[in-house]
Design a protein around this nucleic acid. Structure first.
Lengths: 98, 98
DNA sequence: AAAACATATTGACAAACGTCGATGTATAGT
DNA sequence: ACTATACATCGACGTTTGTCAATATGTTTT
């Protein structure tokens, strides 16, 4: 994962609402209507946030009738975690993230 | 680490220049003048980025004469890494980040 | 004391962001 | 067919962001 993509994911996670959405999806797939219940934002705003999370590759959509089910993308999440884990405050560890 | 602080760190890392700065500091302490050499930005802009990285707790400053030496804050970095590692695309893992 | 250097601060500006109300699109139920 | 539901898109708005030139602050050197 290059720095541009990693930064894009970071930026997506940089909004408190979006970070909380990702944390909720960490428990498994969830539809927009259920997500919406947990926030003080309107439906268009949630839709906008979901679009940003999808566009950076962190979240996938699965359409089922009226419902959109969102889930975390395992591949992107794994790559991103590696990227963050490579950050180190000590010199003894190899660096060179992404 | 709560969601507000985690989101603030994510936002700080959400700029490609700042992510790269953090990656460079991952190799050890570095002064502003050396960081500046690697980017196509002016000195005031770098100073602004460093302020943002410091304010979220991810970076520390050590003044030595004319030079400001920057380094990653181990505690904040560790907390943040835990936060990201708790994100999971599988249901079998415990979640509840931050 | 003066000049040179390293960094921070200020003020300005265009671009991007988060949010909303209104509207559009598609599906499900009556 | 009509209505209700779930979600996306559009247009607008105030706010924040990334950037720079200009200037200020503090340190070292001459």
């Amino acid at each position: 994962m290059n720095e541009i993509d990693a930064a894009k994911i970071c930026r997506a996670l940089g909004d408190p609402n979006r970070l909380q959405i990702v944390q909720m999806l960490s428990g498994g797939e969830m539809c927009a209507c259920r997500l919406l219940e947990h926030f003080q934002i309107t439906q268009p705003t949630l839709s906008h946030h979901m679009k940003i999370l999808c566009e950076c590759g962190l979240v996938d959509t699965r359409r089922e009738g009226k419902w959109s089910h969102y889930s975390l993308n395992c591949g992107t999440l794994a790559d991103f975690r590696v990227c963050i884990e490579q950050l180190s405050c000590c010199k003894n560890e190899k660096e060179g993230c992404c």
